[in-house]
Design a protein around this nucleic acid. Structure first.
Lengths: 353, 353
DNA sequence: CTCCACTGTGGGAGCGCTCCCAAGCGATAG
DNA sequence: CTATCGCTTGGGAGCGCTCCCACAGTGGAG
């Protein structure tokens, strides 16, 4: 593009800004060694004499040498980059801080290495297709994928491409890819136990979309807690929703209609719980006196509802960290096969239950 | 690293997965043309005959050819990547959805191009230094920077590196770099006008940290609205805070102490407003009857306070889009000098004022 | 003494692409 | 008919790096 200046050797590239960056060759010349030796020093090979290493390091410092990634990538066919793939529609459904916390954890772990973090938002079919091409072109060394649906084609794509990848959550309990997830069932169980211990007799639940394993697991925890307590599982006390506030409102209305006698609701997300609380208030039910409410995520919303919401916390940043760690190990090839990590959840008791 | 298999020519790289990717050369061979012609077609040069172009396109489709970025970057010394730099400490202070919305806007705009989005979180001095090296090594074609402080060294770094960059917000009103920001002063003015029109007589404000231009601008809007209405500007009605909930609580307590007669508070962020509302409730003041409250950001928090909060909305996703657009134009060199874009804010009236 | 490790080293080859030069080839002008 | 121009085209050179081969040099074993 555009008429490039004729330009003599080396120095000027396309529209180069700043002074020309030093190359390996220049470092070698200054250090009085060969290219190979500089490369070995830069890459931490042990097969270099102390004397040569010192000379090279001095030269690197003097010139402010930084390796050219493109050149390295070209020959190694590694990119030193991993992608965080986010199906965007989901992000909105998820409790808001989820996204930033995952990123924060991933970035923290990667910052120890010189891996770059690429962010890829996928919001429609076209972008999905582009992603497939993109990944097939091996533009990243590994992939982190969040918000996995049961029938999501993306994990299958990663699998067939044999690209190192780690999921946040899993498609189902036969997941073959590596994944990290919170103990959703355990958290839900804790929440419901808490409600039962409080003396609640008719504990309802509002679920997430059942094509997501997280939603299923939370429902399962609910069911198990009831079982443990010898309570019957009553379909009428279960309302399906979609992790959204409006969904939470709708579900709460349904529940109130079906079972006006309910005295507790465990919601699979804070946002749904917030919606539910609005409806309860509208219906003249006092929280927690008449109806106790527990959410899931312990997001910022939970701290701002009236009354402040009791919620199940999941260590999202830690999930991000762990995902990044597993991915790095997988890329390094230190592990055959896939691995799973389950992180503990925790009940944060506030005033709504 | 590790004992690489001997490997014959071409095909196998480091630990290559999948079939070898086709190269330009193979496309050229299949299409019966030279490398140069394929390159011209791929890069959309007009100086190619229709016949040659068709042959090349057919070959590309047949082989599923995708250009190798590293090879291209090596020779052009462009990377086709831009970085979104986030000083992380700030992200937490900002209303939460801010981050995801900016990203969403940026990604939307970039998805039309084949630019990659790199996310760089900077959370301490060490990472700041790394960033400087990183940018000096020209690993990205441009930089987007959010959460700019008045004395932030990062914009100065970008300036001296002469790397195309766009800020979200500005350091002060002499900003030399390109930036996009919301009409903070205008939004604040609208909010305070709304309070005055409602009949409030003693309108207080809780500000953000005054080393940030957004905070200053919002304070300025507050002052101007009072001026317009012929009201005095009273220092006692102004409390400094830091965009956090706890800061909002502290500031509210201070205000109540100094001016128990206040009947409205304009807060420079929703999160602070939420804190303020808690304190007001604790002090037995009814919102909005006794004290009207307005926040800023129209974040998710605003919708969940009790009562739901009136707030100034800023088009954050649009800001992200615009930032990306300006940056792309700057990279393409279509514009000399820097440009500024101000986006309108809007008052979203709910129940707190 | 020779022979054979072994360590450390230099530098050729080549990764896949863009840039650009020179050459081919019609069409038009002289 | 030849000279000139413009448009296409092929392919050499080279971007900065890693990989690997071959070649010292050193020291211990035979």
């Amino acid at each position: 593009m555009g008429q490039a200046a004729s330009g003599t050797a080396g120095a000027s590239g396309g529209g180069s800004r700043g002074p020309a960056r030093p190359t390996l060759e220049e470092v070698a010349a200054l250090a009085g060694v060969g290219r190979g030796t500089v490369s070995r020093v830069v890459n931490g090979s042990p097969r270099v004499s102390d004397k040569a290493r010192a000379a090279v390091q001095a030269a690197i410092a003097e010139l402010g040498y930084v390796p050219n990634r493109a050149a390295r990538a070209l020959v190694t066919s590694r990119t030193d980059a991993v992608a965080l793939v986010v199906p965007e529609a989901e992000t909105r459904l998820f409790s808001e801080p989820y996204f930033s916390d995952i990123i924060s954890g991933v970035a923290a772990e990667l910052s120890e290495t010189d891996m770059q973090l690429l962010l890829i938002l996928v919001r429609n079919q076209r972008e999905r297709d582009r992603l497939a091409t993109y990944l097939a072109a091996q533009r990243v060394d590994g992939v982190l994928l969040v918000a996995v649906h049961r029938d999501d084609p993306l994990p299958g794509l990663l699998e067939s491409l044999e690209i190192p990848s780690v999921l946040a959550g899993r498609r189902n309990d036969h997941e073959v890819l590596s994944y990290v997830h919170a103990d959703n069932a355990g958290g839900a169980r804790m929440a419901v136990r808490h409600l039962l211990r409080r003396g609640c007799a008719q504990v309802a639940t509002i679920t997430g979309p059942l094509d997501m394993e997280v939603a299923l697991a939370r429902l399962d925890g609910y069911r198990r807690a009831l079982e443990e307590a010898g309570r019957p599982y009553d379909e009428d006390l279960v309302a399906l929703a979609d992790f959204t506030e409006e969904g939470g409102r709708r579900a709460m209305r349904t529940l109130l209609e079906r079972r006006p006698d309910l005295d507790a609701v465990f919601c699979a997300s804070d946002v749904m719980a917030a919606g539910a609380m609005q409806v309860l208030r509208g219906a003249g039910r006092r929280v927690p006196d008449q109806v106790a409410v527990i959410g899931f995520d312990d997001s910022i919303v939970a701290r701002h509802t009236e009354p402040p919401m009791t919620s199940v916390r999941q260590p999202i940043e830690e999930m991000g960290r762990t995902m990044a760690r597993l991915l790095l190990e997988e890329i390094a090839g230190r592990h055959r096969g896939s691995r799973q990590v389950v992180l503990a959840t925790e009940l944060v008791v506030r005033d709504s239950a």
